[in-house]
């Protein structure tokens, strides 16, 4: 029994034109393994094959060659889909339905019994903060609201594996933070999360491991901390030190083997500043 959440072997996708001539090679020989319970980031510039990878994993596209397994099942197996939640890149949702109806529809596709379905829908709409707008058709939703309802439909079946394609695109920093908190929550519940994004800050904050794709080829894969840590640089964070003391420490370090690269005040990120200001104004 395969214990990994996702495994691919030589996954390749070549898009062909109408005459079945080779036109674009979207993904070439991808081999990745994602363990259960981790948050895995799939990074790359636009058109690098992230979405193609996700579609191949979900069986929305058929690979030109290679194979993939999700939760131990082949990804073309229908059974595995009941354990997967998927948030597409854009919210490919039916605009003529309202929030309740769309969750009900997707819930029915998973064969969730009516009573449980209704209670889950109530909880999800509440969790993603759309309770006041639950009867409004999706055509009147803002982009952020569409992302939220998209996320709600992705987890209606309480999946073991959640695949999120650009979950925070088009969201304001507060909503984006909320979604990131939600993703960390998934991890706490023991779910595996695959996160496709080109918003690097998001990925750095929450992913355990990442893979970087470019032009359909895997460039690098590994633990985020290990990939980012500069092993030969040491950082001290000190509070309330006078200017004289700083000079003294600097001369002390220079008298030993170290080189001082910079002595600055750390900056908080713009995101943190924004969040504090908004929270204060409430």
């Amino acid at each position: 029994m395969d214990n990994s959440a996702v495994r691919t072997e030589g996954l390749t996708k070549v898009y062909k034109d109408f005459w079945r001539r080779k036109s674009v090679s979207a993904l070439t020989n991808l081999n990745i393994t994602i363990e259960r319970g981790e948050i895995f980031g799939l990074l790359g510039p636009n058109g690098s094959g992230k979405t193609t990878t996700v579609k191949l994993l979900l069986g929305l596209l058929f690979p030109t060659s290679g194979k993939s397994w999700l939760l131990g099942y082949s990804s073309v197996d229908l059974k595995v889909k009941s354990k997967i939640g998927f948030l597409p890149e854009e919210s490919y949702l039916y605009k003529f339905l309202n929030a309740e109806e769309i969750l009900d529809f997707y819930g029915k596709l998973f064969d969730i019994p009516k009573i449980e379905r209704n209670s889950r829908i109530d909880k999800l709409i509440h969790d993603v903060g759309l309770n006041p707008y639950r009867k409004r058709p999706l055509s009147q939703y803002s982009k952020g609201m569409l992302r939220r309802i998209g996320l709600a439909q992705a987890i209606i079946n309480d999946p073991d594996l959640v695949i999120l394609d650009e979950p925070t695109s088009g969201l304001d920093p507060i909503a984006s933070r909320e979604i990131k908190d939600l993703i960390l929550d998934f991890k706490r519940q023991g779910k595996t999360v695959i996160l496709c994004s080109h918003l690097l800050a998001d990925v750095q904050n929450i992913c355990d491991r990442i893979a970087i794709l470019n032009k359909g080829v895997l460039q690098v894969m590994g633990n985020v901390r290990e990939l980012l840590s500069q092993k030969d640089v040491i950082e001290f964070v000190v509070k309330n030190l006078s200017d004289n003391d700083i000079l003294e420490v600097e001369t002390f370090i220079k008298s030993r083997s170290g080189d001082v690269l910079s002595i600055t005040h750390p900056v908080s990120t713009l995101e943190e500043l924004f969040l504090t200001i908004i929270q204060q104004s409430k």
Partner: peptide, 12 residues
């Protein structure tokens, strides 16, 4: 519209 992906990613 790609709304079909919404259904295809479900066990149908």
């Amino acid at each position: 519209d790609r709304t079909i992906y919404g259904i295809l990613s479900k066990p149908v």
